[in-house]
Design a protein around this nucleic acid. Sequence first.
RNA 1: GCGCCCGUAGCUCAGCUGGAUAGAGCGCCGGACUUCGAAUCCGUAGGUCGUAGGUUCGAAUCCUACCGGGCGUACCA
Length: 587
Amino acid sequence: MNDIRLKWKNKLEDALFSISNLNGIEIKREQIDLIVETPPDPDMGDIAFPLFSLARIFRKNPVTIASDLISYFEENDKDSLSFINTAGPYINIKIDISELTGRVIEGINASGSEYGNTQEYKNQKVMVEFSCPNTNKPLHLGHLRNDSIGMSVSRLMAANGADLQKVNLINDRGIHICKSMLAYRKFGNNTTPVSTGIKSDHFVGNYYVKFNTWAKEYTEAETEARNMLKEWESGSPEVTKLWETMNEWTISGIKKTYEKTGISFDKYYFESKTYKEGRSEVLKGFEDGIFYKENDGSIWADLSEINLDKKVLLRSDGTSLYLTQDIGTAIARHRDWAFERLIYVVGSEQQYHFQVLFYILKKLGFKWAENLPHLSYGMVNLPDGKMKSREGTVVDGDDLVEELTEIAKGEIAAKGRTSEVKNLQKTSEAVALGALNYFLLQISPSKDMIFDPAESISFSGNTGPYLQYMGARISSMLRKYEDRRDEFKEGNFNPDLLILEQERELIKILSDFPELVAEAGREMNPSLICSYLYDLSKNFSRYYHDTPILQDENRDIVVSRIELVRSVLQVLKNAFYLVGIPFLDRM
RNA sequence: GCGCCCGUAGCUCAGCUGGAUAGAGCGCCGGACUUCGAAUCCGUAGGUCGUAGGUUCGAAUCCUACCGGGCGUACCA
């Protein structure tokens, strides 16, 4: 519909320019730049142009300008007149809906699952980094938000034509993993995930918790952990072996969670492999005079150029920090795959970190460092406050998915649909995933959010399952249509028959999808797709509630409506994919 | 202290490149299943858009100050 908006914008601007000439006003054509809007009520029209801004140029009341426009079209372009209405200082356009209907439905039929895709980032290599778990504990709700956003933004980039690579960075090095290792060595008694029957990442996480309780009584615990990190960096075989074992446990467990939640990556990076490169880059930078050394041997970056303080890059004992490692990782990645853009999906608490990282990369002379957006998202809190691992108030990812799945199962049973559904377990998991992803992505990434477990598992209202239900209902309707195919054999699609107000609305919504995909991509904001999905579903459910699709005596009407219904389903599916809602034809 | 983000209905959130009566879900109250699946649909009530100024024909939206909240400002990640 955007092309129609532009067409009318130009047409009206041209007309206004002619009027200004007739009135002897000397302006340039570019000075007339109308704002394009949507009228508050569809009855008023489909496109709106407020004329206020012209009042100054024309030295006239906008209401008068509107009527001047009408007179102009009466004299010069009578054909257009039937689409134009004035409402005070507004010009409203009622578009030729059947022309649009034909075009949109044809377009959706032709493109199928590609409908909505754009060329916005055509020929651009875009890398998206997300998830980035530590290897000392399983994924919690905060990670789940990260994963949902990362996955969705990746799909948005790809939908907008980008050559995409999703990367994960496993934080398998550092003091945190040493804590789990130390506790395991002290209290583990050579048990394993297999011997205890505990999911392997949870098994490791339990020792991290154990460390923290232990450290409360034993003050040397922290020091011992630090010593262990040094041993690790110096390559102690015993420590390395334990590290390998425990990392493998955590990572394989986390990968199971990814699989269950539909998360995937093209490439994994490991901090343990990139931190050394970071260190050598920092040392090189020091030799080139970009960084400086303190008396204790630590190496620092001076950030006064960007109005920040200073930042340590290598500790006095020579070991690396998070930042050092991130420098190395970024460089390694660009060498592996020369991206134009690398999107970091990382929590807002790390904004400072990225400001520093990007600045340092630029100082080191990497041109690509100009194009590294930090997609900063807000924290996930609980209704009664923050998630605190030490207070045991974190919501575990696996537990949550499991809980949602059970609820979904119960819901399906309660609706008496267990026998309809082919695979109860799979369907319940899909419903759970849809609920979770929609809940997490509905909120603008930049905002902190409150995750209410009770609300997330409620399936009524503006939720993932509501959207899935629309998809299932449409599928069901289409099955019925196929069953009665013979009755409608003679029917023909005719866009002129889709003239109900609700049909007009649906067509307009469908036609705006590609533009929305572009916008969501530009803003890296999946919540726009969520709002769109709800709007589309809401409009559709109202429509089919009020209008019998298969009941009409006129076969052409039935066939035409079915075409519309199919188009709605296609767009629903395409949008589902972008926000990680599994499509179900029965539920 | 300084930097960044946020403050919209009882709750959770949309709306923010300024435009026509500020929207939705939940919750509350009340309607609609002999008819394409009621996980649905429709309606009622509920808001000085944190406060005060400013810019503008016009401000929830832009600017300034203040109030309230979050995050950061580590040789943690």
